[in-house]
Amino acid sequence: MAKKLAELQSQMQSDILKRTDGTLPRISVPENTTAEKRFGVYQFAYLSRLIEILSGDYENTWKFVGDEQFYQLAAQYVEAYPSNHPNVRWFGRYFPKFLSDHESAGAHPVLAEIAAIEKAIEDAFDASNDDVATMDDLAAIPPELVTGLTFKLHSSCCLLKQQTNALAIYMALVEDETPEQPENLDEPLYTLAWRNNMMCQYRPLNAEEGMLIDLVQQGQSFATLCEMAATMQDADTAAARVAGHITGWLQSEIISELVIAK
């Protein structure tokens, strides 16, 4: 073990994270500058680089709150969640949770939900290349086995159940339009983000489709989907409505596998 090197690295890291100066006596610099200034390059770069990463990952959250508040929130996040992953792609993965837990979340719950939309879309971008189930796969299922059929969602799928008008605000921000004022919704809104033909997609779901995707995630069968759909709207057309949703999901590459019950 390189003890002196280990001790130096611990000190230096601590000084970068906490903006302290324990490393300075060990630093050598030319006469035209100072150890404080030169070490400060690393201290400054740490915070600015990670805030830049967050502002890229959460561009519309940043747009919504403005530079000053985003910088403050991002700086707090950097302190609360130091990166522990070698790939900076994952640094911001806790930002929606951080915003949700933040002291201002009670007054501004919409912020965490806008960030959650951005994270869902970002995660869909480089999720696993699962197989995609097709209408032909569905047609090949023997009719007597359809009721027990379950569905595996594509790895890129993320179902959000949100309490605010975050989606409307997000969509306005993407279009560089003035967003509506934040408000709480009377009923939760489901939004699905996923990847279709290598392109990230998202769309709001009505209450029935949102519930059905939620049930699919839980591994519930076609028969259960139909039973639950019957509680939402006209029971006589429930099976047809569920079949319609499944058709849409298959055509949109939302389903990766049709699983026949054994």
Partner: peptide, 12 residues
């Protein structure tokens, strides 16, 4: 780039 499970994302 870091110690103790932290990554500073810099070339130190």
């Amino acid at each position: 780039t870091g110690v103790h499970g932290v990554n500073l994302h810099d070339l130190l």
